[in-house]
Computed example of a mutant assay.
Amino acid sequence: MDENNLISKKELLDLMSISYGQLYRWKRKELIPEDWFIKKSSFTGQETFFPRDKVIDRIKKIKDLKDDASLDDLANLFSNKAAEIKLNYENLLSQNIVTSETLNICKELLPKIHELSFEEVLYMYVCDKFLLSGNISLDESKTLFNTLMKSYLNFNGKDFDVIFIRKMGVGFCILCSAKNKFYVEDSAKVVMNLNIGKCIEELKLKLK
């Protein structure tokens, strides 16, 4: 955890204009993850801190959406659990979930099916974000897609980062628990890093 990117509970309540009761109700409802509540020693005893960017972004979304959705619905939106969907390839294009370029690449790597699982749509969505960034090639997106297909379920719904690294012109993908730090050698470059939890949240909003 980056010590410079933490915000205290008092600062958070003041900044976001929310009460102690609201914050802990959202925690009980699992809108704010337990592991974002970080206990640290301070000159006044023990104080609670949060990852600044994540918690501020989450509270903004809760405040924006809470009038149109129940807290249970929001908890489902923010969780890493798969959504129940019934989509085919044509739906992905008509709903602007992925581009045709990404869809054509991924179709080559999937079984010849018409109805897609949430996980398969997620793999395509992540690949699309990488491709649209201009940071990876079409061939590298296949490596990314295959890595997600083979390893995504190993995380059992836990949060992780999708990291693409290039060394001497050769690209490769790793999936790393969001809590863990990673290091690369000097001759390798981290091309792009996406958090899977944030991608799941974005995709659920698109599918809503």
Rank of each mutant, 00 (worst) to 15 (best):
Y89T: 12
N88P: 02
L203V: 06
D64P: 07
K129M: 03
G171D: 03
V162C: 08
K181A: 03
S141W: 00
S79L: 10
L203S: 03
E11C: 11
F50R: 03
L132K: 15
Y24C: 08
K107E: 15
I196M: 14
L15E: 08
K107I: 11
H114R: 11
S19N: 05
E34Y: 11
R25V: 04
G134Y: 09
C176Q: 13
Y183W: 11
Y24W: 14
K112Q: 14
K206R: 12
N96T: 08
N195F: 04
N193L: 11
L6P: 10
E120G: 00
N96R: 11
I113P: 00
N195D: 03
S117Y: 06
W36K: 09
G197W: 11
A188E: 01
R58N: 05
K198Q: 15
S117C: 06
L92P: 01
I85S: 07
A178C: 11
V190Q: 07
N76H: 15
I113H: 00
L116I: 07
S41H: 08
E3P: 08
K29R: 05
K189V: 04
V162E: 02
C106N: 04
E140W: 02
F49A: 02
G45H: 05
S177Y: 10
N180A: 09
S151W: 14
S137F: 06
L122G: 00
V98A: 07
R25D: 00
L122M: 05
F78I: 07
L153T: 12
G45E: 05
N5T: 09
T48H: 01
D53H: 13
F160Y: 06
L77H: 01
S141P: 00
D64F: 12
G134N: 07
M149C: 11
S100G: 03
L144D: 06
K112A: 15
L148R: 00
M149N: 07
D161E: 09
N96Q: 09
Y20Q: 12
D64Y: 08
I196Q: 14
D57V: 07
V191C: 05
N96V: 10
A178F: 10
E84T: 08
D73M: 08
L23D: 01
D53G: 14
H114K: 12
M124A: 08
K198G: 09
N193R: 13
T44G: 13
V98D: 06
V184M: 06
L13T: 13
Y20T: 12
K158V: 03
I18S: 15
E185C: 11
L109C: 01
Q22Y: 09
V191P: 06
N5S: 14
K29S: 03
V126G: 04
L12V: 00
L203D: 06
T99S: 15
F160P: 05
F182A: 12
K204H: 02
F78N: 07
S141H: 00
L131T: 00
F145A: 02
